[in-house]
Amino acid sequence: MNQDYLALLKQRRSIYALGKEITLTDEQVVDLVEAVVAESPTAFNSQTTRAVFLFGAKHDQLWELIAKRLEKEVPDPEAFKRTAAKLATFKAGHGTILYYTDMAVVHDLEQNFPLYRDNFQDWSEQGQGIMTVGVWTSLANNGIGASLQHYNPLIDAEVAAAFDIPSTWRLRAQMPYGSIEAPAGDKDYLPADQRFRVLK
Rank of each mutant, 00 (worst) to 15 (best):
N45L: 12
D102A: 00
V74W: 03
A57D: 11
G134L: 05
Q126S: 11
T83I: 13
R82S: 12
Y100G: 01
Q111T: 13
T83P: 02
A92W: 09
Q128V: 14
V37C: 03
A92L: 01
I130W: 03
H107V: 07
V74H: 10
E39R: 15
Q128Y: 14
Y99W: 14
S124I: 08
V106M: 05
L109G: 05
R117L: 12
T137Q: 10
E39A: 15
R69E: 11
G134S: 01
H59E: 00
A85E: 10
E125S: 15
V106E: 01
L65P: 00
F44I: 06
T48H: 01
W63E: 02
A67P: 03
L65M: 11
W123G: 01
R13L: 10
I130F: 03
F120N: 04
Q11T: 14
Y116P: 10
A51N: 09
P75A: 01
F90D: 02
S46I: 01
N119L: 12
K68L: 12
S40Q: 08
Q47N: 11
G93T: 07
I15K: 02
Y16P: 04
L18Y: 03
P77G: 03
Q128E: 10
W123Q: 02
M131Y: 09
M103W: 05
V37N: 02
L115A: 15
K91T: 10
L62F: 03
T42R: 08
P77A: 08
N112G: 13
L87Y: 00
Q11S: 09
E39F: 15
D31W: 15
V52W: 06
G127H: 02
E39Y: 15
V74T: 12
A85I: 13
V52N: 09
A43F: 11
V74Y: 04
F120E: 07
M131H: 09
R13H: 09
D26M: 05
Q126L: 13
D108R: 15
L18P: 01
D122M: 13
T101Y: 06
H107F: 13
Y100W: 07
D60C: 05
E125G: 15
A57K: 10
F90G: 05
V30M: 09
I97W: 00
Q11F: 13
K86E: 10
H94S: 05
M131C: 14
K72W: 11
V33Q: 00
Q126I: 14
R50L: 09
L65R: 05
L87V: 12
A92F: 07
V29I: 13
K72Y: 10
V36F: 00
K91M: 03
G134N: 11
Q28P: 03
V29N: 02
G93L: 07
Y99E: 00
T23N: 07
Q47I: 07
E34Y: 15
P114H: 11
A79R: 14
V133H: 04
T23A: 04
S14H: 08
A84S: 12
G93V: 08
V33I: 09
P114C: 02
L87F: 01
T96M: 05
H94T: 04
W123L: 08
F44K: 14
E39Q: 15
F55C: 06
K86Y: 14
F80V: 04
D60G: 06
D26K: 09
S124E: 04
L24Q: 03
E21A: 12
Q47T: 08
L65T: 14
H59W: 05
F53V: 01
V30K: 09
T137Y: 09
A57C: 05
I97C: 01
F113I: 12
Q11L: 15
A35S: 12
